[in-house]
Amino acid sequence: MQTFTLKGDFIQLIQLLKVMNWVEHGAMAQWVVEEGLVRYNGEIDYRKRLKVRVGDIVSFDGQEVKII
């Protein structure tokens, strides 16, 4: 599992996918979320603007990141 150090209160889910280099661009990030390919704390979540915070775990395509 990878870790991502949060520099503020939160990061939006689609931004996190881009920062982690799990997707090539913002449109792809939106698409994978809309298609239900991203898990947030173990559950599929369709919210593109979801605020990911410290302690959350996001997984996509066999990769996982914990926000610290």
Rank of each mutant, 00 (worst) to 15 (best):
V65C: 04
V23M: 03
D61Y: 11
I11L: 07
V65Y: 02
F60L: 04
D9K: 04
I14M: 15
V23A: 05
G55W: 04
L50R: 11
I14N: 15
W31C: 04
Q15F: 12
Q15C: 12
E34Y: 14
L50A: 03
I11W: 00
M20A: 13
V54Y: 05
F4M: 02
I57K: 15
K66R: 15
Q2F: 07
G8F: 03
M28Q: 11
L17K: 02
R39V: 06
R39I: 09
L6S: 02
K7Q: 14
K66Q: 10
D9C: 11
K18C: 02
T5R: 01
K48D: 06
Q15W: 06
E34C: 02
R39A: 10
T3F: 00
T3M: 07
G26R: 12
G55F: 05
L17Y: 01
G55M: 07
V19H: 06
E64P: 12
A27D: 10
Y46P: 14
K48Q: 09
W31P: 00
K66W: 06
L17A: 05
Q2S: 14
V58P: 02
G62M: 13
Y46F: 13
Q12V: 06
L37H: 08
N21G: 12
R47Q: 10
M1K: 12
L16S: 03
Q63F: 04
G36M: 10
F4Q: 01
A29K: 07
